[in-house]
Amino acid sequence: MEVNRSVPPATVVPILVYPDVRAAVTFLTEAFGFVERTRIGASHRAQMAVGDDGAVIVADVGADRRAPAPGGTTHTVRVRVPDVDTAFARARDHGAVVVEAPVDREYGERDCTLEDPAGHRWQFAEVVADVAPEEFGCETVSPWPAYRSTGSG
């Protein structure tokens, strides 16, 4: 992949619309620990780093772009973190609305779901066990490259 210092280096970059870009950047920095990398205009957009290899673009309302409306969920952004309980406490303490407190899942993850002031849903997750999809009723169609067997059987 070519390098361009003007865009986040992640493969998938959600663009989330907020009524106030600067307030969103402040909240995402304080509550979630994201890092602002690029500011585009005073209140148009911001590119934010999420962990070691993730990114989010915070965009303003305009044209056909709208922030989430109360009473419905159109998306949830899942972010891997080293410690869900710490991420949960930080976000809650900075005003995130708790949708679901941390819980251990049968598929080997511990996660929680929070909502930011604009209504975007965020799910923070950490691995607590290595579980094959078949162990909880799923089917592996094509293994993720990092999990492909290197053996002959």
Rank of each mutant, 00 (worst) to 15 (best):
A46N: 00
R39L: 03
G51L: 01
H75D: 12
Y107M: 02
E139L: 11
L114Q: 00
R65I: 05
G33Y: 02
P8W: 07
D60K: 03
R78L: 12
G72T: 15
M1H: 13
V79I: 15
F34T: 01
H44L: 15
T38F: 05
C138D: 15
T113L: 02
P68Q: 05
A129Y: 04
R92D: 02
I57N: 09
P8V: 08
P102M: 10
R66V: 01
D104N: 08
P9L: 09
A55V: 04
H44P: 07
A89P: 02
I57R: 04
R5S: 13
P8L: 08
V35C: 12
E2M: 12
R78E: 12
W122S: 00
R37D: 11
V50Y: 00
P102G: 09
T74P: 00
G62V: 10
S142W: 09
T86W: 03
E126L: 05
R37W: 09
E134H: 13
A132F: 04
R92T: 10
D83M: 10
V141K: 11
P117R: 04
A69V: 14
R45I: 06
G51D: 05
V7S: 14
S152L: 13
R92Y: 03
G137F: 11
I40T: 13
V98G: 06
V141W: 12
P68G: 05
R45V: 06
R148M: 15
R148I: 14
A132H: 14
D111G: 05
D111I: 06
V97N: 12
V7C: 10
V58E: 06
T140R: 09
V84I: 04
A24K: 00
H75L: 10
N4E: 09
Q47T: 12
D85G: 02
N4V: 06
Y147N: 15
Q123L: 06
A10L: 08
A24Q: 02
A91E: 01
R66C: 03
R22E: 14
Y107E: 03
D53N: 12
R66W: 09
A118T: 03
C112P: 00
A132N: 08
G119W: 07
P70D: 15
G71I: 10
P9I: 09
Y107R: 01
V81E: 01
P117I: 03
C112T: 05
A49Y: 04
G95I: 01
M48V: 06
P68C: 09
G71R: 10
P68F: 02
V103Q: 08
V3D: 08
S152I: 10
C112E: 00
P102A: 13
R45L: 12
A55I: 05
G108N: 09
V128H: 00
G72W: 07
Y147R: 15
T38A: 13
D93W: 04
F27L: 08
G137K: 09
D64Y: 11
A24S: 07
R92C: 04
V127H: 10
A89I: 06
A125L: 13
D130Y: 11
P68S: 05
R78Y: 14
D64R: 11
T74M: 10
R37M: 13
P8F: 04
Y107S: 06
V98N: 12
G41Y: 01
R37K: 14
D85P: 01
A42H: 11
